[in-house]
C-alpha cells in the first residue's frame, strides 16, 4: 500500500494540470463573451475570417516544417559523417539554450533597414529591401528557431541505421540516389516524423514571432488565442480556437504515429 503514497503528487498533477485544463478549455468554448451558454463561438469559427486564418496557419506551419526538413536532413546526414560528431551535435543544440526571445530580438537588428543583411544586399548590388515585418522573415526566423529540433531526431535515426545495409545496397549496384531513396530515407522515417511533429505543432501556435518579426502581418491561430485571452478578454472564442488547435494536434499525432514516445525523446 505504501508504494502508492508517493505517487499522490503525480496523480494530482495529472488531474489538475493535464485533465482539468483540457476539460476547462472545452467547457469555456461554449460560453459567449457575456457568459451565456451558446454555440456562437463555433458559428464564428466557421466564418471566412477564421477559416482563412486556420488555412493560413496551416500553410505557414507546413512551409516552416518543409523548409526545416529540407535543410535539416542534409545537415544531420553530413553531421554523422564528421569526426567529432557528438561535439558538433552539442554545438547544434547549444543555440536552443539561448532564450527564444533573444534570438528573435537579434533578427530585429539583422533584418532592420540598416541591418547587416541589408548592408550585404547593398554591397552585392541588390539594394536595400524591406525584410522585417514580411512573411519571408517570419518563416526564416521560425525555421532558424526550430531547426535543431528537426536535426536532432533525424541525427539519432541516422546513427541507429546499420551501415552494412548501405554497403549491401551499394554492392547490389544501387546508385547513391537509389540507396538514399530506397534504404536510408525509409529507415530514418521515424526520425523525420518525430522532427516534423516537433516543428509543426509549435509553429501552428507561434505568437511572439508574429508580433515581433512579422509585425502582425501574419495572424496564426496562436496569435488569435493570445489576442482573445489577453487583449479582448473573449475567453470563449479563445477557448474555441484552442479546441480546434487541440484537435489538429491530436490528428497530427495520430497521423505521424507516436509509438516511440517515452522510449526515446
Amino acid at each position: 500500500m505504501r508504494r502508492y503514497a508517493y505517487a499522490i503528487p503525480y496523480w494530482l498533477w495529472i488531474g489538475l494540470f493535464v485533465v482539468a485544463p483540457i476539460i476547462l478549455i472545452i467547457y469555456y468554448s461554449f460560453f459567449d463573451i457575456e457568459g451565456h451558454f451558446s454555440l456562437v463561438n463555433y458559428e464564428t469559427f466557421f466564418t471566412p475570417v477564421y477559416l482563412r486564418m486556420t488555412v493560413n496557419s496551416f500553410w505557414y506551419a507546413f512551409l516552416i516544417t518543409a523548409c526545416s526538413l529540407l535543410i535539416a536532413y542534409p545537415t544531420a546526414y553530413l553531421l554523422t559523417k564528421t569526426k567529432h560528431k557528438q561535439l558538433w551535435l552539442l554545438l547544434i543544440i547549444l543555440p536552443t539554450w539561448v532564450n527564444l526571445l533573444l534570438k528573435a530580438y537579434a533578427f530585429l537588428g539583422l533584418f532592420g533597414t540598416y541591418g547587416a543583411v541589408n548592408a550585404l544586399f547593398e554591397a552585392i548590388g541588390i539594394g536595400t529591401k524591406q525584410l522585417l515585418f514580411t512573411d519571408f522573415s517570419f518563416v526564416f526566423v521560425s525555421v532558424y528557431i526550430f531547426i535543431p529540433f528537426m536535426i536532432l531526431p533525424i541525427f539519432n535515426a541516422l546513427e541507429k541505421l546499420n551501415p552494412s545495409l548501405i554497403d549491401a545496397a551499394r554492392d547490389l549496384g544501387a546508385s547513391e540516389w537509389t540507396t538514399f531513396r530506397r534504404v536510408i530515407f525509409p529507415l530514418t522515417l521515424d526520425g523525420v516524423k518525430a522532427g516534423c511533429q516537433a516543428v509543426f505543432i509549435p509553429s501552428l501556435s507561434l505568437f511572439m514571432l508574429t508580433r515581433l518579426i512579422a509585425g502582425n502581418r501574419v495572424i496564426t491561430l496562436g496569435t488569435a488565442v493570445e489576442q482573445h485571452f489577453l487583449v479582448t478578454q473573449n475567453w470563449g472564442m479563445g477557448a474555441t480556437i484552442a479546441v480546434f488547435l487541440m484537435i489538429a494536434m491530436a490528428s497530427i499525432m495520430a497521423l505521424t504515429g507516436n509509438k516511440k514516445w517515452g522510449v526515446r525523446q
Binding site: 501552428l204 501556435s205 485571452f229 488547435l245 494536434m249 499525432m253
Partner: peptide, 17 residues
C-alpha cells in the same frame, strides 16, 4: 499531453484554471 501541446494552449488553459 503537456509536452506536445502548443505553449499557447497550456498558457490559456492554466490561466482559466
Amino acid at each position: 499531453v503537456l509536452i506536445v501541446s502548443p505553449d499557447v494552449i497550456i498558457g490559456a488553459s492554466f490561466l482559466i484554471l
